[in-house]
């Protein structure tokens, strides 16, 4: 069974600082999206149960060759990368076109896994778009999954309940963060990661049509939330200030 896991290279969100409400992204290290790591863990688990291969797939800037090692260390057997500096901030439609075209080049793909949203934009479009391009059935917000014969049994978790679905392979599945706890690779796994097969493609290798800047970002600023930040010393003092504010004891 071949499982492709689509992973996004993003800036480490914990290390982004704001200057004049603008995010400062220079020198922020790159990493893979958090929920993408859950998707990878789910793939590794399926492979360990059913055999086959886990292929990490990612489109991004040149630094990806380094970033992708996180996935190879955490259990992926090989990686496919599409490298182009324009891909780091590209629209979901562009990334979906690139990923779908690459998946078509990989033989016998049974399951294509995504995280429910990327760590940075959390827009959740790419998985659905890839399913649309490839004409495959999809299940999002998966909180558990298993494979039985030629089908996947997937639980989709919704706000008001769950639905358990049986879907014939191949299928696109987007997992939720709580589906599992991603492993932390050991030192020897990290050392071995660099020797695993890596296929690098460029945009020219893929015959794709893409929308011309379908979404324009006018501004992207930290919201202004001026807060008093008054330190109080006791519960009594706290209750007193909250009474003065008129938010308790009304």
């Amino acid at each position: 069974m071949n499982i492709v896991v689509a992973m996004k290279q993003i800036p480490d969100l914990h290390q982004i600082r704001m200057r004049d409400r603008q995010p400062v992204l220079d020198d922020v290290p790159l990493t893979l999206g958090n929920i993408d790591k859950n998707a990878l863990e789910a793939a590794v688990h399926l492979r360990d149960t059913h055999g086959g291969k886990v292929i990490a797939l990612s489109a991004g800037s040149e630094e990806l060759e380094d970033t992708i090692k996180e996935a190879l260390a955490a259990g992926a057997d090989e990686a496919f990368m599409i490298l182009d500096d324009s891909l780091d901030n590209a629209d979901s439609s562009v990334i979906a076109a690139v990923l779908a075209a690459t998946i078509r080049k990989i033989n016998d793909v049974d399951i294509i896994l995504f995280g429910e949203g990327s760590g940075d934009n959390y827009s959740g479009q790419v998985g659905s778009r890839v399913a649309g391009i490839l004409g495959l059935p999809q299940v999002g917000y998966a909180s558990s999954m298993e494979v039985q014969g030629n089908s996947a049994i997937v639980t989709r978790s919704l706000e008001d309940g769950e639905e358990i679905l049986e879907v014939e392979l191949p299928v696109v599945i987007a997992v939720m963060a709580d589906i599992n706890e991603p492993r932390i690779p050991s030192v020897s796994q990290i050392l071995k990661a660099g020797r695993k097969p890596q296929e690098v493609l460029e945009l020219d290798d893929l015959a794709i049509e893409i929308l011309e800047e379908p979404v324009v970002t006018e501004s992207n600023l930290a919201p202004e939330t001026p807060r008093k930040q008054v330190v109080v010393k006791s519960v009594d003092e706290l209750i007193a200030v909250l009474r003065t504010e008129g938010v308790i004891g009304r």
């Binding site: 439609s93 649309g132 379908p214």
Partner: peptide, 23 residues
Amino acid sequence: SDRRGKELAGRLAQNMGAGCLTD
């Protein structure tokens, strides 16, 4: 942009050849 709507958005946009924003 509840879970059902959000999952639908990307696929519908892809089908229509549309740009898309969620959330």
